[in-house]
Design a protein around this nucleic acid. Sequence first.
DNA 1: TTGTAATTGAGAATCAATCGCAATAAGCTT
DNA 2: AAGCTTATTGCGATTGATTCTCAATTACAA
Lengths: 146, 146
Amino acid sequence: MINQIAIFREYLKSRDLRFTPERRLILEAILSLPGHFNIEGLYYKLHRKMGRLSLATIYRSIPHLINSGLIKEVMRYADRPQYEKSLGCPHHGHLVCINCGKILEFKDDEIEKLQDRVCREYDFKPTEHRLGIRGYCKNCRHKKGK
Amino acid sequence: MINQIAIFREYLKSRDLRFTPERRLILEAILSLPGHFNIEGLYYKLHRKMGRLSLATIYRSIPHLINSGLIKEVMRYADRPQYEKSLGCPHHGHLVCINCGKILEFKDDEIEKLQDRVCREYDFKPTEHRLGIRGYCKNCRHKKGK
DNA sequence: TTGTAATTGAGAATCAATCGCAATAAGCTT
DNA sequence: AAGCTTATTGCGATTGATTCTCAATTACAA
């Protein structure tokens, strides 16, 4: 917690950016959220807590949070980007249920290794990778015979 | 070629939709394009060939082409969806250069198998999966010492 | 050929994301 | 502690891709 805030502050400082109350509130809100989040949800949460915190400010702080390594965009859902905290979370793929919207995470070292192999083969220097599988989750596939 | 047009026609017929000249032109344009495509590129191509073919018509036909299995959305680039022909193309992942925009495709059966294993573990019925790796391609990584 | 219902093009509408600007405030310097 | 410089904020306006509306057109079955 404290750690992440310090990281953000250092990141901002190193770029001559300022550590404002708004930026702190946004980061704290993100840290307090359980799993994935999106702009709309963040705005809703912050709007209730602190009457005036502009949507524009949230949009403007997302790139800083990404560049500081604290969050990352992991996928799109309902045509909107979804983010998650990335510090201390090992990389993982996502299973997205197209019926109920539930998002499951999975971690597979073998897949990661194979991806690295592919990059070596192509002499490609990866900076980010995403593996997303859409379909029907356990509950939904049994519910409707789908 | 002929084959794909027949498939599209059958698909449309089965849903009481009509096989119009516009829809044929759109499919033909897609089939004649080499790799990936997006709406803007399609419109540009069709606009030159046939003066009046509305952007709305292209947007409206994309879902039909996807549902008929002829194309699929494979990724976003520059914040726009990118599509590719899917009939007869084995599934593959993508390496996207964030410097020059080049898109490389790779195929890896082992990764596919591991994905299936993950789905079995979670009792998840997959309908679609995407593996995208962003980074610097061979040329770009050597060019700027990046 | 006719009738019905889907489709088209054009422009309006939508909606997330970005921008411009005047007022505010972070944080260095003294 | 006060001043100064420059980044940041909120607001409202704007952008730009995508979708919608609607009247005119047209596919296609009978």
